[in-house]
Amino acid sequence: MDDTIEITLTVNGETVTRRTSPRQHLVDFLRGELGLTGSHVGCEHGVCGACTIRLDGRAVRGCLTLAVQADGARVETIEGLTESSEISDLQRLFVERNAAQCGYCTPGMLLTAAELVAAGQAMPRAAIRDFMSGNYCRCTGYQAIIDAIEHVLEARFGAPAKEEG
């Protein structure tokens, strides 16, 4: 019943073909089959955001998508985003602001923040907090993370329009 299925997908720009069990979710596949351990498993029910990866250009929960569903898809992880330098400014700011303590949430935070940056506009601080509110961090209290993202958004797109209210 649990026969493996062959899938071919692009991971961080590289085409890979593997057999996977249908029940294996994408983050287990990336970590276990491809050794991409930068994506983490935190809750496996879609709440914590530690497994956030990019699927066909959008941030998704790696634990709520099956590996077989990624057949033919384009997957990017923290390793890929690092190599492409797409978020090097975000990463630099995370270091400078100490926006990571234990670091377990950090790749997922960065993948979510990358989507915010990719949207191409500055945002008020409260909106950044809302946008990032699906990623759990137990260590930092979030402020340094928000600082880092806000700084990058401003550096890239200028100051946000004044907050309403």
Binding site: G46, G49, T52, L55, R58, A59, V60, R61, L64, T65, T112, E115, D130, F131, S133, G134, N135
Partner: peptide, 12 residues
């Protein structure tokens, strides 16, 4: 719609 979950969940 903004009340529905978070970005990564809304994407999927």
């Amino acid at each position: 719609m903004p009340h529905v979950a978070h970005v990564a969940v809304r994407n999927r």
